[in-house]
């Protein structure tokens, strides 16, 4: 799961850079790209949400000791 969380930004980068390839065809329009980007964006946020839920506290429990106990 932690690996998935690490890969997600790379996937996101690829998705966000993909429209650059469409420019050469000349057929893509701003509206199309915009719709695509927002769908990809929403999907990434959704996956990130799922991942963060699955990366439960138990996964990093051993290293999650609060270093400083706040007084009071």
């Amino acid at each position: 799961m932690a690996d998935g969380a690490r890969m997600l930004p790379i996937l996101g980068f690829i998705l966000f850079m993909l429209p650059l390839l469409w420019m050469s065809s000349g057929q893509a329009t701003t509206a199309m790209v915009m719709v695509y980007l927002f769908i990809a964006w929403a999907a990434l946020a959704g996956v990130a949400g799922l991942l963060s839920r699955r990366l439960g506290p138990e996964e990093d429990q051993p290293e999650d000791k609060a270093p400083d106990e706040e007084p009071g």
Binding site: L8, P9, G12, F16, T30, L44, V47
Partner: peptide, 21 residues
């Protein structure tokens, strides 16, 4: 400049979903 403005928000998005790193 059209859609270019959106890059300013794509970058932080990538950072946030890569929070584990």
């Amino acid at each position: 400049s059209g859609l270019e403005f959106i890059t300013i928000y794509l970058g932080p998005t990538l950072v946030m979903i890569g929070w584990w790193w």
